[in-house]
Write a protein that binds this DNA or RNA. Structure first.
Length: 330
DNA sequence: TCCGTGACGCGAT
DNA sequence: GATCGCGCCACGG
């Protein structure tokens, strides 16, 4: 069993558990460490846990600089990541969350892996961005991070929901990296006394990335024969997903532009959802898509009337989102 | 390919 | 709150 954990100060922890066949058996969120602990206590002893955060402060192995050997080495490859300071007090909040998580994992019987025999029952540090690079070779400039991540996990992880957030994908990526670790197909960056960042070992040679501009390299992604129109394909796919999501909003509920963008797989695409609504106003119930404050769509006089007829509660001219907001597909 | 556009979202004021 | 600026994204010329 393999668990990946994505750490965020603002959004809490996202956790993903993969079974031996690399299928998602759990995808959950925990607001804080206490909530996460109940999840961790249910893990078998042979579980392997990969965390997207440094386990502890750096140890001054890079003279005069406040980062770790791992960060120095990856930076030399053109892969940037946040430097880990010498003391906990100088660390960002999400880092401190990570430190606390690794301490908890140690207490629960999953010690940090540093060197020696690799295997089950330990905790390792991973960096999903690095894992994606190792899996796909590169990221194409115009490909969104979300699409890129999803493509990297496709056919490697089973049972991922189509509407997974970036944090959930990163947690799944971490779990997949734990699987590589146990399978012996991994590489570690950094100093084994200070802390290693573990990544999948693949055919891609990361040292060749150095020449290209950092993380905007050239070529995608497993381009099989006949799959060359990745760009245009991706755009129409987003539009299709948006229309499919909007078509599913039930009568009596509304969704915000941002909600629709998230469920269509692109959290930052809210603005594009608006454009699509304008173009497809008569194909889908676009009157049920409101802005983040609950204002009904402009240029549709009849939208408020239709919404009221569907039982949507209003506050002044705005939908009362707290009651009428759809909770999403699936 | 590049660039402007628009039924957005968010933080600052 | 209301408004503004800025960042974002998909499209289309």
């Amino acid at each position: 069993m393999y668990m990946g954990i994505d750490v965020s100060a603002a959004r809490g922890f996202d956790a993903c558990v993969l079974d031996e066949r690399r299928r998602v058996s759990l995808l959950g969120a925990a607001r804080d460490l206490d909530a996460l602990e109940t999840l961790l206590r249910g893990l078998p002893r042979h579980a392997t846990i990969a965390v997207d955060a440094p386990p502890r402060p750096s140890r001054d192995l890079v003279p005069g600089r406040e980062y770790r050997v791992a960060e120095r080495d990856l930076h030399a490859l053109g892969i940037s990541l946040y430097p880990t300071p010498r003391s906990e007090s100088r660390a960002k909040e999400w880092m401190r969350q990570g430190f606390a998580l690794f301490r908890l994992l140690g207490k629960l019987g999953f010690p940090l892996y540093l060197h020696g025999d690799a295997g089950r029952g330990v905790a390792v540090e991973v960096y999903p961005h690095l894992s994606y690079l190792a899996l796909t070779g590169a990221r194409r400039g115009k490909t969104s991070k979300l699409e890129w991540s999803r493509a990297a996990l496709r056919r490697r992880v089973g049972g991922l929901p189509a509407v997974a957030t970036q944090d959930q994908l990163d947690a799944a990526c971490a779990a997949l990296t734990a699987w590589h670790f146990v399978a012996g197909r991994w590489v570690g960056y950094g100093d084994p006394t200070e802390g290693l960042i573990v990544a999948p070992q693949t055919g891609h040679d990361l040292s060749r990335l150095r020449a290209a501009a950092r993380d905007q390299l050239e070529l995608p992604i497993e381009a099989g024969p006949g799959r060359r129109q990745l760009g245009p394909l991706r755009q129409s796919t987003f539009a299709e997903r948006v229309l499919r999501v909007v078509a599913q909003i039930p009568s009596g509920k509304v969704a915000t532009y941002g909600d629709v963008a998230r469920w269509a797989g692109n959290p930052a695409g809210a603005r594009a959802v608006g454009t699509l609504m304008a173009r497809h106003a008569f194909e889908v119930p676009c009157h049920r898509v409101v802005d983040s404050r609950g204002a009904p769509p402009p240029f549709r006089e009849e939208a408020p009337r239709m919404l009221k007829r569907e039982g949507i509660p209003f506050d002044g001219g705005r939908v009362r989102l707290s009651e009428a907001r759809w909770r999403g597909p699936g």
